[in-house]
Simulated scan of single mutants.
Amino acid sequence: MPLTEIPLSVWRKRGQTFEFNGQTIHYWTAGQGEPLLLIHGFPTASWDWHYLWQPLSQRYRVIACDMLGFGDSAKPVNHEYSLLEQADLQQALLAHLHVEQPVHVFAHDYGDSVAQELLARHYEARITLASCVFLNGGLFPETHRPVMIQKLLLSPLGWMIGRAFSRDGLVKSFRQIFGPQTRPSESEMDDFWSLVESNRGPRIMHKLITYIPERRVQRDRWVSAMQRGDVPLRVIDGAVDPISGEHMVTRYRELIPDADTVLLTDIGHYPQIEAPCQVLKHYLSFRDRLVLPPLKVACS
């Protein structure tokens, strides 16, 4: 049974705001129970989670924001964007909502890197995570395969490329990274573009893209955190994603002990949009496994 879509216009009306370092951040929360923090990817926003929002909020206290520079949140021009600051933002949001218990994290793409930073901070006793699930993202710089627009934004002409970025450019990029049978409709592309364009977002795309070299700087610290094994992890990955598809999962299995991975056949870079029912099934099975009582072993 297909999951219910939340139209972007409705989603926006349900949002709230808070101040982070003098900037206005839009956030959403629903449900009760264990806190579940959803972290979106580049270049989109928390509306990416809208298919999963209602079913997840029936079980958990679901929390998401448009990160600084994304969606309807502030997009300051004279600002140096950082994944570390985005992790600070997530912690500030949790503090704003008075969340004190261990947090479950569900992340995608750029959000995977923010989640990796939160995982590293867990082992530094700066936050307590209960679990973490990654959708398609550049967990390892050596497996990340940027698309052309990302390469151009990283070039010396990136500021010009960003300002010239249009809906047509977004469509072209998404055609490359979605599965062949699961590409977004024209209406969905209008909504994605509305979030990118909000608050004159193309002006700062060349600043946001610095997350790619920042990943290389933090790589060993983040991989070491994933290898610790105290926080349950799972990867749910669209296999045909050219950026972080099956090749990334192969590397994950090489590096992470007892790797828990799920590959979605014929699905691309946005599993939560392309195959939300499958993602929900595999996420809930992961969470259900965490609450199963330990097996009793008979000894003779």
Rank of each mutant, 00 (worst) to 15 (best):
L3Y: 07
L3R: 03
E5V: 11
S9W: 14
Q16C: 10
T17Y: 12
F20L: 05
H26V: 05
W28Y: 12
Q32S: 13
P35M: 04
L37E: 14
P43G: 01
T44G: 00
S46Q: 12
H50Y: 10
Q54P: 06
L56K: 04
S57G: 00
L68N: 01
S73N: 09
E85V: 11
E85M: 12
E85N: 10
L89S: 01
H98Q: 14
V99P: 08
E100H: 14
P102A: 06
Y110C: 03
G111I: 11
G111Q: 12
V114H: 03
A125E: 15
T128C: 09
T128L: 13
A130M: 10
C132F: 09
L135I: 09
G137V: 14
T143S: 08
H144R: 07
L153Q: 01
L153R: 00
L153I: 08
P156T: 06
G158Y: 13
I161F: 12
G162M: 11
R163I: 05
A164N: 14
A164F: 15
D168E: 15
D168L: 13
S173A: 15
R175W: 13
G179E: 14
E186D: 15
V196L: 13
R200M: 09
G201L: 12
P202R: 00
K207N: 06
E214W: 07
R215M: 05
V217Y: 03
D220K: 04
R228Y: 09
G229Q: 09
G229C: 06
D230R: 10
V231K: 02
P232S: 05
L233R: 02
V235T: 07
I236L: 07
V240H: 03
S244C: 15
H247D: 13
M248V: 07
R251G: 00
Y252K: 02
R253E: 15
T265S: 11
T265L: 14
H269K: 00
Q272V: 10
I273Y: 07
I273R: 02
P276A: 00
V279I: 08
H282E: 15
Y283R: 05
Y283M: 07
L284Y: 12
L284M: 14
R289C: 08
L290Y: 09
A298D: 15
S300Y: 14
